[in-house]
Amino acid sequence: MRFSVLASGSTGNSIYVENDDHAFIVDAGLSGKKMEQLFTKVDRNMKQLSGIFVTHEHSDHIKGIGVLARKYNVPVYANAKTWQAMDGLVGDIPLEQRFEFEMDTVKHFGSLAVESFAVSHDAADPMFYSFHEDGRKLVVITDTGYVSDRMKGIIRGADSFVFESNHDVNMLQMGRYPWSIKRRILSDVGHVSNEDAAIAMSDVVFEKPTNIYLSHLSKDNNMKELARMSVTQTLQSCGIIVGEYLNLLDTDAEEPTKLVTV
């Protein structure tokens, strides 16, 4: 199983996951043209896609889904409420390409198992995904106001995480956003801060080689260096030293991460 975080941030999100037989993306929150460019950068072709898994209907996650589905005849998977919420936002997707993937279920694609799980975000029925193959596990969790014990039980022990580290609380509080947006981001259906993300990480990592990709960083209320520093310090306060068995890696809104094996 291999993956690349194609893009992650306030302006658009997409993650590529493949094994020897299938290739998927989680969300397509950029234009079709930009998605094609990102695929080229990881030496892959859209024609290889086996499907698109949708997390929720916010534009930074679905902007390119309709275009890609129609152009490349790609199956799209989402739960019923998300399909309903996407109606009118992604254009017409043929019925034969529309598949329901309900929350808290597992779908098998050959040797690859894909598990959906609920998160706490202000969307119709938001959910994220855990990928399993040959005893290896990749977790994607990038939009949630908090990480519940139930979520932790599902994602615990992954070999690689694409984990939200959205904002620095002080930057957000002192920033230009109106209070209504600040309150939404800080709420239980908003986004997790650097510190809260790190506390959740401390509860789900095992003492084995683990990579955590800090993702969905706010363009206005976070910085890569600040996110790494805050997460590192908070993990250290929880007894986890970054660099021993746990590695923190950056993601970017414009450039994909290197395609790596889980």
Rank of each mutant, 00 (worst) to 15 (best):
R183E: 09
N194V: 08
G64Y: 00
T40P: 08
V119K: 03
E18H: 15
L172E: 03
T40D: 11
S116G: 12
E36W: 04
V260K: 12
D43A: 12
H216W: 01
D143V: 02
L89M: 07
K71E: 06
H56W: 01
D203Y: 03
K152Y: 02
V140P: 15
A80L: 13
S59F: 11
D252M: 05
G66F: 05
G12K: 08
E100C: 05
I62Y: 08
V162C: 06
E18K: 15
F131Q: 12
S120T: 05
Y245S: 13
V42H: 01
E100T: 11
F128S: 01
I185E: 01
R70V: 00
Y77D: 04
F117H: 00
L214M: 12
R98I: 10
F117W: 02
G110N: 05
M171I: 11
S8C: 02
N45V: 05
F128G: 00
M127S: 04
L89Q: 05
F206W: 05
V204I: 11
V205T: 10
S180F: 11
Q236E: 08
M174I: 02
R2D: 08
Q84G: 09
I199D: 04
S116Q: 11
S187R: 04
L226I: 08
F128W: 02
H56Y: 08
R70F: 01
I62K: 08
W83C: 06
R176I: 15
N211S: 14
E225D: 07
G64H: 02
I241E: 14
F161Q: 04
L95F: 06
A85Y: 10
Q84K: 14
T232F: 04
R183N: 09
S237I: 07
H132V: 02
S50E: 06
T105W: 06
T144A: 04
W83S: 03
F131G: 12
R136H: 05
E225A: 05
H121P: 07
D196A: 05
A23M: 11
H167M: 09
D21C: 11
H191C: 15
T11L: 07
L249Q: 07
R228Q: 05
G91K: 12
A227D: 02
A85S: 14
V205Y: 09
C238N: 12
L249D: 00
D143S: 13
V90H: 10
L30Q: 03
S116C: 14
A80F: 03
K224S: 09
S14K: 06
A227H: 01
A28P: 14
M86Q: 10
L186V: 00
E207G: 10
E100V: 13
T251N: 07
N166G: 01
E18P: 15
N13Q: 06
A118G: 01
N13S: 02
P94N: 09
Y129V: 03
E36H: 11
E244S: 13
N73M: 07
S180C: 08
H132Y: 09
N19R: 13
I199V: 07
K258G: 02
G157A: 07
A23S: 12
L259Q: 12
D203C: 08
